[in-house]
């Protein structure tokens, strides 16, 4: 009995060494891809899931041309609108001045 135990005791360090070595190899095999991935450059391509362009955020595919056209149209309309408003106000005041001047002249002749 003692002899068997002694034999097992002799074999145990060898088995332990083999088990440990196997564990280390398995760990290395498992961790190798993760370590390699950490060294790769970051990428902008989708990796967690693909999103069709139709479902992406609106601003990402918002066309610029209508915004630019609207901006220039607003500027032109505002400028022309103000010029027209100023011209019509001036014309109205000139008409009123002519009318009142005529009445003042008529009044001074009496």
């Amino acid at each position: 009995m003692m002899g068997k135990i002694t034999g097992l005791d002799r074999r145990l360090p060898r088995m332990l060494r083999q088990t440990l070595a196997g564990f280390v190899v398995a760990l290395a095999v498992l961790l190798a891809p993760a370590a390699a991935g950490a060294q790769q450059p970051p990428t902008t391509a989708a990796q967690e899931g693909f999103v069709p362009v139709d479902e992406s955020k609106p601003q990402e595919h918002l066309p610029a041309a209508p915004l630019v056209m609207t901006a220039y149209a607003v500027a032109w309309v505002a400028i022309f609108g103000y010029v027209w408003s100023l011209w019509s106000r001036l014309a109205r005041v000139e008409r009123e001045i002519a009318e009142v001047s005529r009445r003042v002249d008529a009044g001074s002749r009496r």
Binding site: L62, L67, A71, V74, A75, Y82
Partner: peptide
């Protein structure tokens, strides 16, 4: 007021695309 209005309208039109 007139030219400020032009700036206040054209700015957001630019920002909508540039800033979201």
């Amino acid at each position: 007021v007139v030219f400020g209005l032009i700036g206040l309208i054209t700015g957001p039109l630019w920002g909508r695309k540039a800033w979201g």
